[in-house]
Amino acid sequence: MLPVDQALITAQRILVVEAPAVMELLSPKPGAQSVIVTHKRMLNAAMLDSIRPDAIVGPLISPDWDIVDLAITVSALAYSGNFFVLTQPLPRAELVIREVRAVCPNLTVKLIEVA
């Protein structure tokens, strides 16, 4: 497992979209960090405006969508910022990053690889 990115550790508000495994990587920071867990189907502009996440985390692949779908959704809802992809170790991780960035250049895409 790679170390967790500093941007995720220091984020004040993290939106976790169907990626509960990331919770094991975060240290509790009462009063300093909020973690909101949701489903992709629940995302809307009002939610993002209310939460104002510093980081969004989603799985590479879910049963109904993949990370590119999530990136397009949050970008369409005017989110720009840190966007983390939770995944198993990949042989060519840069391809995932490149694909998401090509579709949503407003996102700062990073991987969180877990075994």
Rank of each mutant, 00 (worst) to 15 (best):
V57D: 07
G81E: 07
Y79I: 01
M47S: 07
V85A: 05
V68R: 11
P63M: 11
A78W: 11
L43Y: 03
P30V: 15
V96Y: 04
W65Y: 15
L60F: 13
P59M: 11
A11T: 00
R41C: 05
A71F: 02
V85E: 09
V35L: 05
V103T: 03
C104T: 09
D54E: 06
S27I: 15
V74I: 11
I51P: 02
G58I: 10
R52G: 00
I72T: 05
K110P: 03
D5S: 14
Q12Y: 02
I112N: 02
V109F: 08
T73R: 09
F83P: 04
V22S: 05
R98L: 15
R98K: 15
V37W: 02
A55R: 01
D69P: 06
I56G: 02
P30S: 10
V35C: 03
G81C: 05
A32C: 05
P63N: 13
Q6R: 12
C104H: 00
F84A: 01
V74W: 02
V103D: 02
P59D: 06
F84G: 05
E24G: 14
D54H: 05
I56N: 01
S34I: 04
S34K: 08
V22L: 10
P20T: 08
P28Q: 12
P28E: 14
E24W: 08
R13V: 04
P59E: 11
G58W: 09
T87K: 03
K40P: 01
R101C: 09
L90Y: 10
A55T: 00
D54Y: 02
M1E: 12
A93V: 08
V68F: 06
P20K: 06
V109S: 04
E94A: 11
F84D: 07
L15Q: 03
A55G: 07
I61P: 01
T38A: 13
T38R: 09
L25E: 09
L15S: 03
I9P: 02
P63T: 00
D54G: 02
I51H: 14
G58F: 12
L2H: 11
L2T: 14
V96A: 01
L2A: 09
V37A: 07
P3G: 00
F84K: 07
D64G: 04
K110F: 00
A46T: 14
V37Y: 03
V85P: 05
W65K: 08
S80V: 02
V68H: 07
L43S: 07
R92A: 13
R13S: 09
E94T: 07
E113Q: 13
K29S: 11
V22A: 01
I67L: 11
A45M: 12
A7L: 08
N44E: 12
V37N: 06
S62Y: 04
V96I: 15
L70P: 00
S75R: 09
G81A: 05
I61R: 15
A78V: 06
I97L: 00
P20N: 05
M1Q: 15
L2M: 11
Q6K: 03
A32I: 09
A32K: 14
L86R: 01
Q88L: 14
M23L: 14
A46F: 10
D54V: 07
A45W: 15
I112D: 01
V100C: 00
A45P: 05
I112H: 00
W65F: 15
V16Q: 06
A46K: 15
S27Q: 12
R41S: 14
P59C: 15
G58A: 11
P63V: 02
I72K: 08
V35K: 01
K40T: 13
